[in-house]
Amino acid sequence: MADYIEVDVRGLSCPEPVMLTAAALKANPGKALKILASEAHVRTNVEKLLKSKKVDFTSSEVGSEYEILTK
């Protein structure tokens, strides 16, 4: 099982979730991230960032929230 670095952006206003994810990618090159999001539009924005950075990821709903795992 991969050892993930957790980035919890739940409940934060735009653009903090994307900025925190971008900062975590920069600070942890090559490491897998687990991004926890609570809003659908935040999930969309984070996924868009990961695509633009060419980072592979899987995204799933966990209860009423979202979990995005980078590879």
Binding site: R10, G11, L12, S13, P15, E16, M19, S38, S64
Partner: peptide
């Protein structure tokens, strides 16, 4: 200010 870490904190369900 966003770059300096501005945040109004989290909202909760």
């Amino acid at each position: 200010f966003l770059k300096k870490g501005f945040s109004l904190g989290r909202a909760y369900e």
